[in-house]
Amino acid sequence: MIYIIFIIGLILDYLTKIWAIDTLKGKPDITVIKGFFDLSYLENRGAAFGIFQGRVYLLAAVTLLVLVVLFVNYVKTKKKTLLFTLSNALILTGAVGNLIDRLRYGFVVDFISWHWKEAYYFPTFNVADICVTVGTGLLIIYILKEVD
């Protein structure tokens, strides 16, 4: 199951980023919900929230290290519950999706923009980021359940 989630997630991430490049790059944002949600092309040359700008090789190396640790941990874990498998699949998917962008373009394609009118903008993100975030949340839940 981990492989199916991984492949579907990577395809979805790839297709949405290609769509963003073809549809949004160099063009005005697409407003989905006025004052709240836009589709807006952004080339993120850093990591989460724009940190480590321009450090492509450092970020790629850290991502590869995280991928190896996660994969080895997954393989070594005897009790592979659905929650554990899903969380690992999503984190791996997101990490690989953004790694592909970094190595291919030198930046990560982001395009989902949530904001509150003009007062607050959450950092623009993509499908891979959603996978990492949801996967991490599920992994935290798994760990908390296992501690009990």
Rank of each mutant, 00 (worst) to 15 (best):
T63E: 01
A47Q: 09
L99I: 08
V62P: 00
I11K: 01
F107T: 12
L67W: 04
V127S: 02
T16K: 01
D22R: 13
A61T: 15
T85E: 03
I21C: 04
K25R: 11
N73A: 11
W19I: 15
L83Y: 00
I4S: 05
W19S: 10
T63W: 01
Y3D: 10
T31D: 04
T85S: 12
W116R: 08
Y3S: 14
T133Y: 00
V108A: 03
D38S: 05
D101Q: 03
A61D: 02
M1W: 08
V108Y: 00
F71R: 09
V69P: 01
I141S: 09
L144T: 12
L82Q: 09
K17F: 00
V66M: 08
Y57E: 10
V134E: 01
K25P: 09
W19C: 08
I4D: 05
L64A: 11
V134C: 05
A48T: 12
V72L: 06
I30Q: 01
L15V: 13
I33T: 09
Y142S: 14
N98P: 10
L10A: 10
K25W: 02
I100W: 00
S113V: 15
D38Y: 04
T136I: 15
G9Y: 00
V69W: 00
L144G: 13
D129N: 06
T77M: 07
T77P: 02
W19F: 13
D22L: 14
D29E: 12
Y14Q: 15
T136R: 07
R104C: 11
T23S: 08
L67Q: 06
T77D: 07
R45E: 15
T124R: 04
A119Y: 09
A119F: 13
V68H: 04
L64S: 09
Y74V: 13
D129C: 06
Y14G: 07
R102L: 12
G26D: 03
A60C: 11
I100C: 01
V69Y: 02
S40N: 14
Y74A: 09
K79I: 14
I140S: 06
V109A: 01
V68T: 11
L64H: 04
K17H: 03
I112S: 11
F122I: 11
Y41T: 15
A89V: 14
L83H: 03
F107V: 15
F6Y: 13
T136H: 03
S113D: 15
V108F: 02
N126A: 10
K145A: 13
L86E: 04
T16S: 12
G54V: 14
T23L: 05
